[in-house]
Design a protein around this nucleic acid. Structure first.
Length: 424
DNA sequence: TCTGGGGTCCTTGTGCGA
DNA sequence: TCTGTCGCACAAGGACCC
């Protein structure tokens, strides 16, 4: 037990801001004629998924992560847009500027969500609910976008509150929602108890199934469940986590700067790949993309992981850990090629991925012995590569062995992030 | 209906040295 | 020398999040 757990914690005021159908709302700013219509942003191919749906599309059961093919069936008259990640990133930065006016403690969760700790801002701007209203007004007036904000004493409650503040699409109408929802001190349990248990952070389909078997359907059920059974079903860690959330306990701080723990790329192909030659070509592109991002952040990876998803959706990962961190594509390839050779591609591979973890500073500085050794100087060649890409764009140059007549680099953010186009 | 891409965190199993 | 155990690091996979 840490000393702090026996002392009363200072009360905090946390906001969770969540943009309304963010990607769709950004698209509507440049295509206002689509306002009021079902609009879906996401993968356009048959293997894509929905990234965002307008509330008009949600009335037909279209939601994020739904396969695009299903979305088209449910709402054939919707307008489907491929998405523009670069634009969303730029608008997200503008939203962030508004948040920054109210507190330096802003923790982005994604392009369209953030936590704000406004505990120290209230003397200047008023209570949390007031700050939330000011932020909403600024986002609406300056950026022509909607957002909902939850206000509570911690991140977990604030996030739940923002969901309660959101508009709701029903088959016959769209309820506009509260916009701002405050969970007042002392009312937390009344707020939590009736909620379905899957609203707790960390309860997905698998955990929900286990909880249902224990008779836990709502948050209130966690107060009376047999704790031994809960622990043996979920493990002590997850059981403790859920019991704490069920009484509204969450002391995680708002962290403005979080360091990445892994950097990776993966790609689903419109048609399965069946040969080692094809997979090797894809591996070259992925390794090059990951290496490029590692170098851009001044990092190297000690662990390199390859992910393979077969036609039947069975997914395996294989990783290699080295003493020295790598940030060059040839080094990553050198580690992964022997692993790839153990994979039988004949059943069909639908996805290949490469990621680096155990991130640290790279260790490819050449020693005198390396220079004497007549091997290729990948470090110098890669620096030149990065410079060319910096000046002429990411597609301007790439490894020749990755060429197959359809472009040089992997599809990165801004491309088909939500699945492949059918023709690719 | 058939499942993206970017991540994080946790659990379990295994190998190894003390 | 053999065996058991403990702690640690790593590998692999699962679950979850947006």
């Amino acid at each position: 037990m840490s000393p702090s757990s026996t002392e009363p914690r200072p009360a905090r005021t946390i906001l969770h801001a969540d943009m309304d159908a963010f990607f769709v709302s950004v698209e509507l700013r440049r295509r206002p004629e689509l306002a009021g219509k079902p609009v879906v942003v996401g993968g356009t191919g048959n293997r894509g998924v929905v990234a965002a749906a307008s509330y008009e599309a949600r009335r037909f059961g279209v939601h994020s992560a739904l396969p695009s093919s299903v979305a088209r069936r449910r709402c054939p008259h919707a307008v489907f847009l491929p998405g523009d990640h670069a634009l969303y990133g730029a608008v997200s930065a503008q939203v962030r500027e508004i948040f920054d006016r109210y507190t330096p403690l802003v923790e982005p969760l994604s392009l369209d969500e953030a936590f704000l700790d406004v505990t120290g801002s209230q003397r200047l701007f008023g209570p949390g609910a007031e700050i939330a209203a000011q932020i909403r007004a600024a986002v609406r007036d300056e950026l022509d976008l909607g957002c909902c904000i939850g206000v509570a004493r911690n991140k977990f409650l604030a996030k739940l509150a923002s969901v309660e503040a959101k508009p709701v699409a029903r088959p016959d109408r769209i309820d506009p929602g509260l916009g701002v929802k405050v969970v007042e001190a002392g009312s937390e349990q009344t707020f939590l108890d009736p909620l379905p248990v899957q609203r707790l952070w960390g309860v997905g389909p698998a955990t929900l199934e286990k909880l249902h078997r224990l008779g836990v359907v709502r948050v209130a059920d966690l107060h009376v469940v047999d704790r031994t059974a809960l622990q043996s079903t979920l493990g002590a860690n997850q059981a403790g986590h859920l019991l704490a959330l069920a009484v509204g306990d969450d002391d995680r701080p708002v962290e403005p700067e979080r360091e990445a723990k892994s950097i990776g790329h993966e790609e689903t192909y419109p048609h399965d790949k069946h040969t080692a030659v094809e997979l090797d070509r894809e591996l070259v592109r992925l390794a090059d993309a990951v290496a490029q991002r590692l170098r851009a952040q001044g990092l190297g990876a000690r662990t390199i992981t390859m992910k393979v998803r077969f036609a039947g959706f069975v997914t395996i990962t294989r990783s290699v850990t080295t003493a020295d961190a790598v940030d060059l594509a040839p080094d990553i390839l050198g580690l992964l090629r022997p692993v790839l050779e153990t994979i039988d591609p004949t059943p069909g591979v639908r996805l290949l991925g490469v990621s680096g973890s155990n991130l640290t500073t790279p260790s490819h500085q050449l020693s005198f012995d390396d220079v004497l050794d007549a091997g290729p100087d990948w470090s110098a060649a890669t620096s030149a590569l990065d410079e060319i890409r910096g000046r002429f764009g990411a597609d301007s140059i790439g490894p020749a062995s990755s060429l197959d007549g359809r472009g040089l680099n992997v599809v990165t953010r801004g491309g088909q992030q939500w699945g492949p186009d059918d023709e690719r």
